[in-house]
């Protein structure tokens, strides 16, 4: 059958028939489903995209259920919403030019499968960051608070600790600002692994036995560093300037 002669409804029907054969482990022809993806992405046909969505939603849902990350997320998230975000991610990530990298239906479905995992990872990253910040409230609560400026203290009361930085450039600026204030490899490691990776002193010590003799030494470097950063008026002012 000539693919060009088929409209989206015809393609969608053929794709569904062939998919049923495929899942019944019989001979099948993947060209209809591939063409449906091609029209959705390259020809930017909304109708074709809707057909792709309808055809592959059950498969995407089954993948979500089988993903181990979903076990801890399903209570707090609506699966239909996650399915929507998976398709949206695929739509966003595969440009017309990039479509040429996908030679067959298998590669497209593998990408869709990757998007399922990616979406669940995104949910996990947000939750992990939230957990890290909550943990840090307890961990840092006992630390001595050294003279932050009044202006900064006033700013603090109106800003949430979890407030999002609006741009990656702001994060980079903050990173470079603090990096310039680190005086040794030990401080650089402790800062990076504490604030970027959220590793505990025990984990940091275990990963850098050439730098730290034990966990206590990591904690000492960390406490001194935090105390110094707290006293740093330039850092406080910069945080205000960056609206953090």
């Amino acid at each position: 059958m000539d693919l060009d002669a088929l409209n989206v409804v015809g393609l969608s029907t053929a794709c569904q028939e062939q998919s049923n054969l495929y899942f019944a482990r019989q001979s099948f022809d993947p060209k209809y489903c591939y063409e449906l993806f091609r029209r959705a992405i390259v020809s930017q046909s909304d109708e074709a995209w809707t057909a792709v969505y309808q055809q592959y939603t059950p498969l995407v849902k089954s993948w979500i259920h089988k993903n181990s990350l979903w076990q801890s997320q399903q209570a707090a998230h609506d699966i239909d919403e996650v399915v929507n975000r998976v398709f949206a991610k695929m739509w966003r990530c595969i440009s017309i030019e990039k479509f040429t990298s996908f030679a067959d239906l298998a590669s497209l479905l593998r990408y869709l499968q990757m998007c399922v995992h990616s979406e669940l990872v995104d949910i996990g990253r947000v939750a992990a960051r939230h957990t890290a910040v909550l943990e840090s409230e307890t961990l840092f609560a006992d630390a001595e608070s050294d003279v932050p400026s009044e202006e900064y203290q006033a700013h603090q009361t109106s800003a949430s600790a979890e407030q999002e930085v609006t741009t990656a450039a702001q994060k980079d600026a903050l990173w470079h600002l603090v990096s310039a204030k680190l005086n040794s490899d030990a401080e650089r490691i402790v800062f990076y692994e504490t604030f970027v990776l959220w590793q505990k002193p025990r984990q940091i010590a275990a990963g850098h036995t050439d730098i730290f003799r034990n966990t206590k030494e990591v904690s000492r470097v960390k406490d001194n560093l935090i105390a110094r950063l707290r006293r740093d008026r330039e850092l406080h002012q910069s945080l205000i300037d960056l609206s953090l």
């Binding site: 990530c93 990757m114 930085v165 603090v178 970027v196 950063l229």
Partner: peptide
Amino acid sequence: MLEQKLLAQLYRHQCPSSEQLGE
């Protein structure tokens, strides 16, 4: 608190996106 603000903003800020990791 300064530390929490740093953590909230810098946590995994250098990581590739999940899509980049997948690709």
